[in-house]
Structure formats: C-alpha cells, structure tokens
C-alpha cells in the first residue's frame, strides 16, 4: 500500500512538472517571448487543475476540503495575473477564509464518517456522467479554438487599446470596484444584501427546527 502511494506521488510530481514546463514553453512559443507571467500562470494553472482533480477524487471529505484551499489559492493567483487584485484578496478572505472554515467546522462536527456501502441504484448511470463531460469538453475546445480571441490581444500589444492600468492605474482596485458597484450596479448590490439576509435567516430557521426535533438536546 505504501509503495503504491509512493509510486502515485512520483508519477503525479513528474506529471505536474512536465505540465508546467510544457505550458510555459507553449505560451512562450505562442506569444513569441518568455515572460515570468507565463511561468507564474503555468504554476497557478497546474495547481488549480490538480487540486480540483484532488477535490473530486479524494475519498475523505477532510482531505478534499484541504485540497479545495489549494485550488482556491491557485485561482487567487490567476486573479492577480488578470490585474484583479481586489477580487483576489476577497477570494482569499471569503473563500479560503470563511467558506472553507465553515466546511471544516461541519466536517469536524460530524466526524469523518465513511459512506455506508449500500447498493447504489444510480451507479450504472456513471458512464453517462463521463459522456456528458467528454462531450462538453470537446464542444468547449472546438468553440475556443475556432474563435479568434487573439485579435484583441494583438490590439492591446499594438497600443491602440489601453492596456490594463495604462489610463486607469486603479484598474481592479477597491476604488474602481466600489465605483462600479455604486455607479452602475446599485441594484445587484442591494440584491446581494437581500440574498445574504435570506441566507442568514434560512440558516437560523434550519438550525432551530433541528433543535426542536431533538427537544432541546
């Protein structure tokens, strides 16, 4: 058992490193020059995809949740690369801070209970799930590879379109986000507060009913 997990670890490490190097090389060839942005992006992309796979593949809920932290932090790095520092900070605080801690509290409260091995009436439908994934992935690849997104990138390099931060040094900062919320999106902003209120009341109601069912135990 220990030997096999060691093998899996070595294979995963080699796969990760080759993925990072390959992605960096591909980006360098595609864009014509090497920048550290490409290296950081490759590392973050590898982290995001690998931790996502771990979240879905690991049997234990605790380990899956800890893997989710890795995926969320990798996504935060991607946000920083996309000149969205405020969103990246909120990602770390709200997701990796609040939401994951909530998950960990619930898991600690319930204990790591293995799923009872019952006959699963739906297990024969699992190939359909894989089929859906493969079809969607093929569709996404076809759409992405036949869409000419590069036009916009070249425009940015040519300088005809302002690069992020070129005219507005606060692009993606708290002030820009705040202005966007207050000036253009005041209704979604207020709707957000309503959603939070409903969620809080709902959580309290759920907890209260559970306590009543157990007669205050």
């Amino acid at each position: 058992m220990k030997g096999s997990s060691l093998t899996i670890g070595i294979v995963a490490t080699v796969a990760t490193i080759s993925f990072i190097v390959g992605l960096t090389l591909a980006l360098t060839l595609a864009m014509g020059a090497f920048t550290f942005e490409q290296l950081v992006f490759s590392v973050a992309a590898a982290g995001a995809i690998e931790f996502s796979i771990l979240v879905v593949a690991l049997p234990g809920t605790f380990r899956a949740t800890v893997s989710l932290i890795g995926a969320l932090l990798s996504v935060a790095v991607l946000f920083v690369l996309l000149t969205a520092p405020f969103v990246a900070v909120i990602q770390v605080i709200v997701y990796a801070g609040a939401i994951v801690v909530l998950f960990l509290f619930v898991i600690a409260y319930m204990g790591e209970r293995p799923l009872a091995a019952v006959a699963d009436p739906l297990v024969r439908w699992q190939p359909v799930a894989w089929l859906v994934i493969v079809v969607l992935a093929a569709q996404a690849l076809v759409v992405l590879l036949t869409t000419d997104l590069a036009v916009r990138d070249e425009l940015q390099e040519g300088g005809t379109v302002a690069t992020p931060g070129g005219e507005n040094p606060d692009f993606g900062g708290p002030e820009a986000i705040g202005r966007s919320f207050i000036d253009d999106y005041i209704v979604p902003f207020e709707a957000t507060s309503l959603v939070l209120l409903v969620a809080a009341v709902g959580a309290v109601l759920l907890a209260k009913r559970a306590v009543q069912l157990e007669r205050g135990r």
């Binding site: 020059a33 996502s52 997104l149 916009r152």
Partner: peptide, 18 residues
C-alpha cells in the same frame, strides 16, 4: 505593464477544465 504575456485562451481553458 505586463501587456499580454498569456493569451485569454489559456485562462478560458483553465476555467473550462475547473
């Protein structure tokens, strides 16, 4: 400014994979 060392396509692929 970092310009565009990484094309948008790469981000979209990562996003789709996740």
């Amino acid at each position: 400014m970092s310009g565009s060392g990484v094309p948008l396509l790469a981000y979209l692929l990562v996003s789709g994979a996740m």
